[in-house]
Design a protein around this nucleic acid. Structure first.
Lengths: 201, 201
DNA sequence: GCGTCTACCGACCGTACGTTCGGTAGACCT
DNA sequence: AGGTCTACCGAACGTACGGTCGGTAGACGC
């Protein structure tokens, strides 16, 4: 669905609570704030009032930009999932020996974690309470299956240590990768993926 | 505060909703149910009505056994934390070379995870929204510090691989261990701690 | 069989939540 | 300067929540 009319894109300037000038919010900038608060307090533990206070606007103003609380969650989860699935489409993930493809997916997953940290963090915490969350869980399982297949193929090629169960190793490694989101802050050393590389061998 | 009067301890029998006989609930059995639901839907996402429905009694009946929702969370978190701190007191954690103590703590942590799975799982998901949660977070940080000290000591002894940062390794390893709670079900093979042992070396 | 004790119940309360709505200040265009 | 458009607001609504309370069936001791 391409937009024929050129998008305005120019940020309108408004006066904030304190009378100072600032760019008006748009769905994206609001999403960024919402995700931060969702991570801090949990989705269910976050009220629209919490979001409004953090953004410095009123609760009702939020509805001018987004449909509601769940729409914010949906957009955030989609952003993380879209990035992860894009990795599956990359050449490095579809061509060559399974072991190389696996390495590529692991490395790129960590890079996505770095780039889209808050969105991925949120995704990793989804529990499935609403339809939105269940949908995200299903897509996440699809991604996990993609990786599991790579592990199985690499294992069949004899390119993985035979002394540990491939499925178990996958879970542990991804558990490790995903746990990074609990303490990592972008800007540090990226030797992290070198490390993950060492473990998978 | 020791109880002078001998606790009754004998389980009273009551008639359930369907007229069948069953043992009456007590704080412990109710806690077990509550923790299960907390894990499934998240603490904030769980209503007292959810708990009541799962237990097969009415919402108000729950208050006959426990003070409230937060008291259930508090009891659950205490159970996990008490078990973890008990590990710190064990002889294997306080005597001998640091590397051995570290190994012991890691192995015992995994065993605790196995024994007290739901309670530890809940602990790992705490976000700090209430005073109860903040308290649990603080105790957890204390435990983490205990482990970090062991790692530092083992590293100073030259018993850890020098090519990776000890603090980083600790985080990754405990991220790995903690991620086990997301998929592990007691009863499987316990080769898990052999594996963790291999990684730390 | 009778009395006591307690696990349980339904009805209710105040509050906080997500969401809606009618309005307005002021940014931008001409 | 006048007109339009929009990001924002305060007040209000229905609902669902955590928690309270007075009452009762029936299990148990005698």
């Amino acid at each position: 669905m391409t937009t024929r009319l050129a998008a305005p894109a120019r940020a309108r300037l408004v006066r904030g609570r304190g009378g100072e000038r600032r760019p008006a919010y748009d769905p994206d900038s609001l999403l960024e704030i919402a995700v931060t608060v969702f991570i801090e307090r949990g989705y269910d533990g976050t009220s629209m009032e919490d979001l409004a206070r953090t953004a410095g606007i009123s609760k009702s103003s939020i509805y001018h930009h987004v449909a509601g609380k769940e729409a914010l969650l949906h957009a955030a989860l989609d952003r993380a999932l879209d990035a992860l699935f894009a990795v599956c489409e990359e050449e490095g993930s579809t061509a060559g020996p399974a072991i190389d493809r696996l390495r590529h997916v692991i490395r790129r997953s960590i890079e996505i974690l770095d780039q889209e940290l808050p969105y991925v963090t949120l995704l990793l915490r989804v529990r499935g309470n609403t339809a939105t969350e269940q949908n995200a869980l299903e897509r996440r399982r699809t991604f996990d299956r993609f990786v599991a297949n790579l592990v199985a193929a690499a294992s069949a090629d004899g390119d993985l240590r035979a002394d540990l169960d491939p499925a178990l190793a996958t879970r542990l490694i991804f558990g490790m990768i995903n746990s990074i989101s609990e303490w990592y802050h972008p800007g540090g050393e990226i030797t992290v993926d070198e490390l993950a590389d060492g473990v998978v061998s």
